[in-house]
Simulated assay, not measured.
Amino acid sequence: MRTRSDELGRSLRGVVVGGGPLGLEAAGALQTMGIAATVVQYAERLMDAQLDVTAGSIVKRHLQARGIAVRTATRVTRIDPDESGAVTAIEFQDGSFQRVDVVVFTVGMRARDELARNADIEVHPRGGVVIDEGCRTSDAAVLAIGDVACFFEGRRAGRTGAAYDMAEVAAERLLGGTRSFIGSDESAAATVAGVEVASFGDALTRTPDAVDVLYADPVAGVYRKLVLAEDAHTLLGGILVGDASAYGALRTLVGARLEEDPASYVLPVRG
Rank of each mutant, 00 (worst) to 15 (best):
residue 3 T to L: 15
residue 4 R to V: 05
residue 7 E to I: 12
residue 8 L to K: 15
residue 13 R to P: 11
residue 15 V to L: 12
residue 15 V to G: 00
residue 16 V to W: 09
residue 21 P to V: 13
residue 21 P to Y: 11
residue 22 L to G: 12
residue 24 L to H: 04
residue 29 A to P: 03
residue 30 L to G: 02
residue 32 T to A: 11
residue 35 I to V: 15
residue 39 V to K: 03
residue 40 V to H: 08
residue 41 Q to T: 03
residue 46 L to R: 02
residue 46 L to K: 03
residue 47 M to Y: 04
residue 49 A to E: 10
residue 54 T to M: 11
residue 56 G to I: 03
residue 57 S to C: 05
residue 58 I to W: 00
residue 58 I to F: 01
residue 67 G to R: 05
residue 70 V to S: 04
residue 72 T to Q: 07
residue 76 V to G: 02
residue 78 R to H: 14
residue 85 G to D: 08
residue 86 A to P: 08
residue 86 A to N: 11
residue 91 E to V: 12
residue 91 E to H: 14
residue 92 F to L: 10
residue 92 F to Y: 14
residue 93 Q to M: 09
residue 95 G to D: 13
residue 96 S to L: 12
residue 99 R to P: 08
residue 101 D to R: 06
residue 104 V to L: 15
residue 105 F to E: 10
residue 108 G to W: 01
residue 109 M to F: 12
residue 109 M to T: 10
residue 114 E to R: 13
residue 114 E to N: 14
residue 115 L to W: 11
residue 115 L to K: 11
residue 116 A to P: 09
residue 123 V to F: 05
residue 127 G to N: 05
residue 129 V to N: 04
residue 129 V to E: 03
residue 131 I to W: 01
residue 133 E to H: 02
residue 136 R to M: 04
residue 139 D to V: 12
residue 140 A to F: 06
residue 141 A to T: 15
residue 143 L to A: 07
residue 145 I to D: 00
residue 145 I to Q: 00
residue 147 D to V: 08
residue 149 A to Y: 03
residue 152 F to R: 15
residue 154 G to R: 03
residue 154 G to K: 03
residue 155 R to P: 06
residue 156 R to H: 01
residue 158 G to N: 03
residue 158 G to L: 05
residue 159 R to C: 06
residue 162 A to L: 05
residue 163 A to Y: 00
residue 163 A to T: 08
residue 166 M to Y: 01
residue 169 V to W: 00
residue 172 E to A: 09
residue 172 E to P: 07
residue 175 L to N: 13
residue 175 L to S: 14
residue 177 G to Y: 10
residue 179 R to N: 09
residue 180 S to A: 10
residue 180 S to L: 11
residue 183 G to F: 00
residue 183 G to M: 02
residue 185 D to E: 07
residue 188 A to W: 04
residue 198 A to S: 08
residue 199 S to G: 14
residue 200 F to D: 01
residue 203 A to F: 06
residue 205 T to S: 15
residue 209 D to C: 07
residue 210 A to L: 02
residue 216 A to Q: 14
residue 219 V to K: 11
residue 220 A to Q: 14
residue 222 V to E: 13
residue 223 Y to K: 04
residue 223 Y to F: 08
residue 228 L to W: 07
residue 231 D to I: 06
residue 232 A to D: 09
residue 236 L to V: 04
residue 237 G to R: 05
residue 238 G to M: 03
residue 240 L to W: 08
residue 241 V to W: 06
residue 245 S to R: 09
residue 246 A to I: 00
residue 248 G to N: 11
residue 250 L to H: 02
residue 253 L to K: 15
residue 258 L to F: 06
residue 258 L to H: 03
residue 262 P to S: 12
residue 264 S to P: 09
residue 264 S to H: 08
